[in-house]
Write a protein that binds this DNA or RNA. Structure first.
Lengths: 352, 352
DNA sequence: ATGAAAGCGCTAACAC
DNA sequence: GTGTTAGCGCTTTCAT
């Protein structure tokens, strides 16, 4: 519903011509009350204030005019945008897509909107997005850090801007965050492979400084050490040329005479490239080679063998992230809290 | 940088204590000019106004205070939020994820932010999101309609709210939109299957009223008619239980004695379920059965046979969508424009 | 070349 | 129980 503004304060409800959105003033006029009363009623303030009859008049007027409060104006006044910024590596990656989706749905329930950005693993883009979002007056940020993004965090810390760290972590940056028990679950993965007979497990992982990924490596190394297994040369992949590095690494191993008999891929993207390779090479899974991958992926379903994988509790992650950031916003000087959720190892055909 | 506000208008720059964000007023104070001048300089207005020396003073002051204009305040004044709402079926579906990503990146370049919602193919959620986004004061909407969402569009039309329709279309809703040549490319797909020897092509599609999907069916039917091929009973899947319906439909065909010798899946989700089935049944592709799917999907890469597919020009789609909605926002009474882009058929192993 | 001031739509303190 | 009003941070018209 729109209003034609004739004089200064006099509005005339009209049917077709679009000129001006309905504002609180129009509702007040129609209900014959002050704008303050409208605000009180529509925001459901402690209702010892307005009498029920005027309250009803106001509600009716609002309905009739199809009044929609202007959140921008409210934000300006209350200094709260009710917008949260989410920065992930790549929103087209279903892992982040799922988190974003849950986050968005949960946020909606408590009146928050989420704006999403993809850093593309690039620290400059990451920093640029942070700035853009802050300029956009987001109330807080949910961030999946990229390598070399420490300075962005230091700046946020210095300005005491509310944020939490999602999924990943950065050495030396001690902030509120939510992630999973990367080391423990990776330890379990590796132990499982070994228990199932693997003598030569191979780690396919990243060349990175991101803590969560390093922890996955640690879990692997810890397990092979405890089992007195001599390490095959791990494949460490650069994050920006995954496919090439994975292929090259696997080629080296599978063309040699000290072939691995199991592989642990520490991410869904690594697994994706690796499985493609194994498919091409026609390697028998699990007889010749056992496989466990990190993260769920639809793609695994079209692979001839059901892949065992580490399932992250995405719902829990998203819910906790949201809870944490809201908490942070409302209470800026809180103690730092690092929540660690438990991932689950799902065993299927690829681990006999 | 923060400011300690001592009296009413007097601010004192301080180092640690956080009280108040830097505002235009602070910059004006520091530069010894009016806030109007600050606004002029920082918004790079036609510079016949402010002298270079004051302009420099202002820029320096802004930099020194690390001033960040408050977009909320600007929005309130200019009545433009520079926020766009995007509603897709499911942001966790990489097809939409990719579009969202490109959209977001392009939007950023022209100073727009995108907020994303997933309708989950549910028309109530769809409508709720629209309302939420409008309340959020988005300048325009980019919408992938769901079934039975006509009333939402009628409402938008009535209010002349700027929006464009993405990827899909709805019967009877004639709005600005961007999609691909669904019928033509589906015709080409089917013809290709037939030319390559298929006598009994099978259509696996949706039971739906969404125009874009129906067009894919039409393309198929047109091709088999022109080639005088008797139709196998198409599989029409309900959008909310894809896997079950696909399995049941394929079971019926492959257990009978009039087996199809080629399949056209009209979406990536259908193909996903179908390929899973074919994998389980161990059906020989392409010898026994040729396959073409709609949309690209990472998952296809892990299937033992490279799947031929219809590639949608996602970048172009996103760019056009953005251009169109911006156009719409700036010029509300524009003629209706329906842009149709060309998809591309990528032939690989699954079509001999 | 610059400043003063109105006002965007709302909230909330204060007045009556 | 209800109204008045200041003011959030900015843009922009109108003075000077």
């Amino acid at each position: 519903m729109y209003i034609v503004q004739l004089k200064n304060n006099y509005n005339f409800v009209f049917n077709k011509i679009v000129l001006k959105k309905v504002s609180i003033k129009d509702v007040a006029n129609l209900a014959n009350v002050s704008i303050a009363s409208v605000s009180y009623v529509l925001n459901k303030m402690p209702n010892n204030r307005i009498s029920e009859s005027t309250a009803n008049r106001i509600k009716e007027a609002a309905e009739k005019l199809n009044y929609r409060p202007n959140k921008i104006a409210k934000s300006l006044k209350t200094n709260q945008s009710k917008i949260l910024g989410l920065i992930v590596a790549d929103i087209a990656n279903p892992f982040f897509g799922k988190i974003a989706k849950i986050l968005e749905e949960e946020a909606l329930k408590i009146g928050y909107t989420i704006i999403i950005g993809s850093s593309g693993e690039n620290n400059e883009k990451f920093d640029k997005l942070i700035n853009f979002f802050i300029d956009q007056q987001v109330d807080g940020l949910i961030l999946a850090p990229v390598e070399n993004s420490e300075k962005s965090f230091l700046k946020l810390n210095q300005e005491k801007f509310p944020y939490i760290i999602l999924d990943r972590n950065l050495d030396g940056i001690n902030s509120n965050g939510i992630k999973i028990n990367n080391e423990e679950i990776s330890f379990e993965v590796t132990n499982t492979l070994i228990k199932k007979g693997s003598k030569k497990p191979l780690l396919v992982s990243y060349e990175t400084t991101l803590g969560n990924l390093l922890e996955r490596d640690f879990g692997f190394y810890k397990a092979i050490k405890e089992n007195n297994i001599k390490e095959l040369e791990s494949i460490k992949v650069k994050i920006d040329d995954i496919q090439k590095d994975v292929y090259a690494g696997l080629d080296k191993h599978f063309n040699g005479d000290n072939k691995p008999d199991s592989i642990f891929f520490t991410s869904n993207k690594l697994a994706f490239s690796g499985l493609k390779y194994l498919l091409k090479r026609n390697i028998n899974i699990p007889e010749e080679l056992q496989v466990i991958a990190f993260d769920e992926s639809e793609a695994y379903e079209l692979f001839p063998v059901e892949i065992s994988y580490v399932k992250q509790p995405l719902d829990e992650i998203a819910q906790n992230a949201l809870e944490m950031i809201i908490n942070n916003i409302n209470n800026k000087n809180k103690v730092i809290q690092n929540k660690e959720l438990c991932a689950e190892l799902i065993l299927r055909e690829s681990t006999n």
